[in-house]
Design a protein around this nucleic acid. Sequence first.
DNA 1: TTATGTGTATTAATACAATAATACACTAGT
DNA 2: ACTAGTGTATTATTGTATTAATACACATAA
Lengths: 123, 123
Amino acid sequence: MFSINPQSGLPIYKQLMEQIRRMISSGQLKPGDNLPSVRELALTHAVNAMTISKAYNMLEAEGLLARQRGKAMTVSDNNQLSENKQDRLKRLQPALSQLTIATDQLELDIEDVITLLRNKVEK
Amino acid sequence: MFSINPQSGLPIYKQLMEQIRRMISSGQLKPGDNLPSVRELALTHAVNAMTISKAYNMLEAEGLLARQRGKAMTVSDNNQLSENKQDRLKRLQPALSQLTIATDQLELDIEDVITLLRNKVEK
DNA sequence: TTATGTGTATTAATACAATAATACACTAGT
DNA sequence: ACTAGTGTATTATTGTATTAATACACATAA
């Protein structure tokens, strides 16, 4: 469900926050849906439980998630959460910039990159 | 020449290291070429000089750069440095993965992403 | 009631990242 | 010699990230 990479240099809790935001944004996580438990995520990704909790905590502060003690964290249903295509494309910008900067610095042809991209998605 | 973002969560010195590696890999930086001075990069990117120095230092330890006290850091000429297309495409993998994961989680159509990518490169 | 499952809070410890300010060693041009 | 330009080292300080180990408050089902 999530892709956590402790070696990436990006703080784990930030990786998790961004990925949860995306899945809410797309509607794969809907208002009322339960999130995986802190301990479960900590186990499956070999990470400390408090690190997961920190991500949940901050998303709750943002209003994206709702907490009920003793129960699983859920996606908040107060807000208009899932976003239209244009909004979701905006969330892609950082990853897109990363790729174009790398493509440029490596002097690669964008069409080659696109071919690679298509292959990666198809499989 | 470089694109440094102190807010990205990624350590600044690692951002710089990776970007220098790419430009050497593509041949935009050739053996013997001078790199921008520590102080110049620090100024233009509003970053501490020692942070730049750390990146240079580690790349020197890797053998990519060569230092001569009192002179500018240069690209090392001992090694086989610039890489063929396939090798450079390999260096793109992390950025590609980032993008495909995000695309997936946002439930976006890969063709829309590719369109965005083309626009970004053309301009 | 008990057992097991939620998330949370706290404390301590460790490591890393970045900054500021200063000084040093060296090179090159004047 | 002087000056301005390299990279480097040092010290002190700040903030962040992560972990381990416990303990707490609450919910739910047996």
